[in-house]
């Protein structure tokens, strides 16, 4: 069964919203599970690649929190990390189950300006190319005697700086080629039509309606019960916000 990308996109928005609002460990954990299970139906390899980097970032955030704020922030750090993983997992599922061109279709149907849509779509289309560039540049530098096995974060970053410099050079060159090609493809165009449209079935409308109701309920809850910052403050140890509790 193919997933309607618009429904999937709405699901991602819902997961992101819920992640930002939920403050209990149990709730965020459930959310992470909900955000990860659909990966089974997506391109698992792509999902794994995205999540590998997210797991590393999450681990770093967790360690930094503990080091800087002490063991008292253990629960707060854990919730933060799970929240981050839930959000990235939802995006990873979306990216692994849809094509970048689908994002163009969704944004097009939301009447987002063409130039913004294509800026995002092109950056996603060329992301794997840039990753390939970075690896090839690293190899060319190793061939010229550069070592990337330095110890320590500072040295590792310093060793990788030339890769960034080289990537900027390549990207600038690529940007000119892409701009030239966009021009030759007749972009931007005021009379642009759409060949492929998202095909909505009854079940898609049902799902969208469900997500919309969920989101609406959350908004009402937020407006009537507590502000987001109060929730955030409640989730944080007092030392971080200097005792701020919304008073």
């Amino acid at each position: 069964m193919t997933v309607n990308p618009a429904v999937l996109f709405a699901w991602v928005l819902l997961i992101v919203s819920l992640s930002l609002i939920m403050s209990s460990l149990f709730a965020v954990l459930i959310l992470l599970i909900v955000a990860s299970v659909p990966a089974v139906f997506a391109d698992l390899k792509r999902y794994g690649t995205y999540m590998k980097f997210s797991m590393l970032s999450a681990l770093l955030i967790f360690v930094f929190n503990i080091v800087l704020l002490g063991m008292g922030s253990l629960m707060f750090s854990l919730i933060m990390v799970l929240r981050l993983l839930a959000i990235t997992s939802a995006f990873a599922v979306f990216s692994s189950a849809t094509e970048f061109d689908d994002i163009v279709l969704i944004m097009d149907s939301l009447k987002i300006p063409q130039k913004s849509v294509f800026s995002i779509a092109l950056s996603m289309r060329f992301f794997p190319v840039l990753v390939g560039d970075a690896e090839q540049i690293r190899e060319s530098m190793v061939a010229r005697g550069m070592s990337f096995e330095e110890k320590g974060v500072k040295n590792k970053l310093k060793a990788r700086l030339p890769i960034l410099s080289s990537m900027v050079n390549l990207s600038l060159d690529r940007a000119i080629n892409i701009a030239e090609s966009l021009e030759l493809h007749g972009f931007p165009s005021k009379k642009r039509t759409r060949w492929t449209k998202i095909d909505y079935k009854v079940r898609d409308f049902v799902m969208l309606a469900l997500f919309a109701v969920d989101l609406l309920a959350l908004i009402i809850y937020l407006l009537t019960y507590q502000s987001f910052y109060e929730l955030l403050a409640a989730a944080m140890p007092a030392t971080i916000l200097g005792g701020y509790h919304g008073n």
Binding site: E99, L122, N177, G186, R192
Partner: peptide
């Protein structure tokens, strides 16, 4: 660098949509 869309048929259609 001259191909802008992610799949073959959508790339062929892109210029036609713009027209």
């Amino acid at each position: 660098n001259q191909i802008l869309m992610s799949t073959v048929e959508r790339e062929i259609a892109f210029g036609l949509e713009n027209a």
